[in-house]
Simulated assay, not measured.
Amino acid sequence: MAQSEGKRWGELNNSEWVQVNLEKKRRKKRGQPDEPVSEIFNLPLPPDFEAEINKKFPACEKLLCMRKILTESDVSKKQARLNMLCHELETFRFLNDEETGDLRQGKGTEVPVMHKSITRGVKESPMSFFQRDVRKDSHPPERVSSSYVFTKGWNSLVSEDGLKKGDVIQCWAFRDGEKLVGMALVKEDRSVNLASSHHHAW
C-alpha cells in the first residue's frame, strides 16, 4: 500500500508528493509509444549555452528537467507565465528536499535563467519561480494539479527570444553542491503544429 494512500495533500511529506506525481506521469504514458531514454537524457546543451554556463558555474551539475511544447497560454502576454506541470517533469533531482518543501509551502524564489535573445545571444535574466496547486483543498492528492511556474520576466523572455506557440523548449537546472544556482530555457530548432496534432511533454 502506498504511504500516501488516505492522506490529504497537506499531509504528504516531500518524498510522497514526488511519488504521487511520478505515478501520475506513469498513468498518463500508458498506451503511448515509449520513447528511447536517450531521446531525453542524452540531449546535450547547445555549445553557446554550455560555454556561458561553464564560465559562470564551472563545477555545476546540469539536469534536463523537461521538454515542453509551448501553448497559446504560455506565450500570452495576458497570462504572463510559463506553466510546467509537475507530473510531466523528467526529474525532481534539480531540487533538494528543503527547496521542494519551500515551494510546496508557497515560498517562491528568484532564479537566474539563461536564454538566447535574438539580438544578444545567450544572456541571463532573473525570473520568479514558484509552485501552484489546483484543487488541493477539495480533492485527494492524486487529483491535485501541481505546476512549477515562471512569472516575472517571462513576457520579456518570450519577446527577446522570439518564442511562439508550438515552439519546443527545454528546461535545464544547474546545481552546485546542495544549491540550485541557475536554470536555462533552450529553444529547439523545431516547432509543432498544435492545431493539427496531439502532442505532450516528453
Results as ranks from 00 to 15, higher is better:
residue 3 Q to I: 00
residue 5 E to L: 10
residue 9 W to S: 00
residue 10 G to Y: 12
residue 12 L to P: 01
residue 21 N to Q: 12
residue 21 N to M: 09
residue 21 N to V: 01
residue 26 R to W: 01
residue 29 K to W: 07
residue 30 R to T: 08
residue 31 G to F: 03
residue 32 Q to Y: 07
residue 36 P to L: 11
residue 42 N to L: 13
residue 44 P to G: 00
residue 44 P to L: 00
residue 51 A to F: 12
residue 52 E to Q: 11
residue 52 E to V: 05
residue 52 E to M: 09
residue 56 K to V: 09
residue 59 A to F: 11
residue 65 C to W: 02
residue 66 M to I: 13
residue 70 L to A: 04
residue 70 L to C: 03
residue 71 T to N: 06
residue 72 E to C: 05
residue 73 S to K: 10
residue 80 A to E: 09
residue 81 R to F: 04
residue 83 N to V: 15
residue 86 C to H: 04
residue 86 C to L: 11
residue 88 E to Y: 09
residue 91 T to M: 02
residue 92 F to N: 04
residue 93 R to I: 03
residue 93 R to E: 15
residue 95 L to E: 04
residue 97 D to T: 11
residue 97 D to V: 10
residue 99 E to Y: 03
residue 104 R to L: 01
residue 104 R to E: 03
residue 112 P to A: 02
residue 112 P to M: 01
residue 114 M to I: 03
residue 115 H to R: 07
residue 118 I to S: 06
residue 118 I to T: 06
residue 120 R to N: 12
residue 120 R to W: 08
residue 122 V to R: 01
residue 126 P to W: 13
residue 127 M to Y: 06
residue 128 S to W: 05
residue 128 S to G: 15
residue 131 Q to N: 12
residue 131 Q to V: 09
residue 135 R to N: 14
residue 136 K to D: 07
residue 137 D to V: 09
residue 139 H to M: 11
residue 143 R to D: 13
residue 143 R to T: 08
residue 144 V to T: 08
residue 147 S to C: 09
residue 156 S to A: 15
residue 157 L to P: 07
residue 159 S to C: 10
residue 167 D to F: 04
residue 182 G to A: 02
residue 185 L to D: 02
residue 185 L to R: 02
residue 185 L to T: 07
residue 185 L to M: 13
residue 187 K to P: 00
residue 190 R to I: 06
residue 190 R to K: 14
residue 190 R to N: 07
residue 191 S to Q: 15
residue 192 V to K: 15
residue 193 N to M: 11
residue 197 S to Q: 11
residue 197 S to P: 05
residue 197 S to E: 12
residue 201 A to T: 06
